[in-house]
Design a binder for these strands. Sequence first.
DNA 1: AGGAGTGTTAGTAA
DNA 2: GTTACTAACACTCC
Length: 286
Amino acid sequence: MPELPEVETVRRGLTQLVAGATIDHVDVYYPKMVRPDAEIFTADLIGRKIEKIDRRGKYLLFRFSGDLTLISHLRMEGKYDVQPEGSPIPKHTHVIFHLKDQRELRYNDTRKFGRMRLVKTGTEATELKSLAQMGPEPTESALTLAYMQRVFGKSHKIVKPFLLDQSKIAGLGNIYVDEVLWLSKINPLTPADTLTQAQLSVLRQNIIAEIARAIQGHGTTVHTFSTAFGETGDFQNELHVYGHEGEPCERCGTEIVKIKVAQRGTHFCPHCQPYPPEMQEGLVDD
DNA sequence: AGGAGTGTTAGTAA
DNA sequence: GTTACTAACACTCC
């Protein structure tokens, strides 16, 4: 479930719940999930204090005492929650961080896609290529129009997978890409380097504003996302196209369609987001 | 039974 | 080097 707004929502919840807590010991029930090997992973964490929790793109970065950082990616269904010591362990709980205050920080992940890496603080980029190559955060200061013009201008990749590429802009996923393209009236099949300066400017503003709004709404719950407090997000009520196939476009009434683009379900309004010129060649018009 | 799902990476081909 | 498509990861839900 987690794109940047959901990961940020989790980060804020976890900060309230476990920042300042100290690890007593750690149990790993699905060893493939962690690196280095579970034995080293668990041994290194004993007695460490969770000093703070950062985020970069869709990665959570738990900062521990003694210059240790846990890099955690939730992938599709990863979730953290905090439970009293000894509560029943659900089927899909894969890692438990036992805290010294009789609570447990638990990682749950139905599909087991999530991954954790324990590294020395400061070596994150060396240890993880995707962190080293991560594009700017979608904020007013980090995502400049000049940057947008430069990177879009040199790629002929169509804009949907372009925006999903974390090395271009950090944190966007399938839901918010569809939403910002609808807000910007850009067809998902448009090649990145054919967008006009005006379109890039509009797209940039919509990305920045939409991500900020989604964070304010505590993220989007479409399948099973919940915050660290076990609550759902609110932003699913603010979606315009994702999950709205067959419904009328809020702007023009045309039926929202769903197609496959770059192997991902893609929702858009065929009237507000017309196909780019090079795709319309050969189409019969009146 | 078959397909799709909020993500990412590896492999292959053009 | 770039783009595009497939498979894989593992599991649930419709």
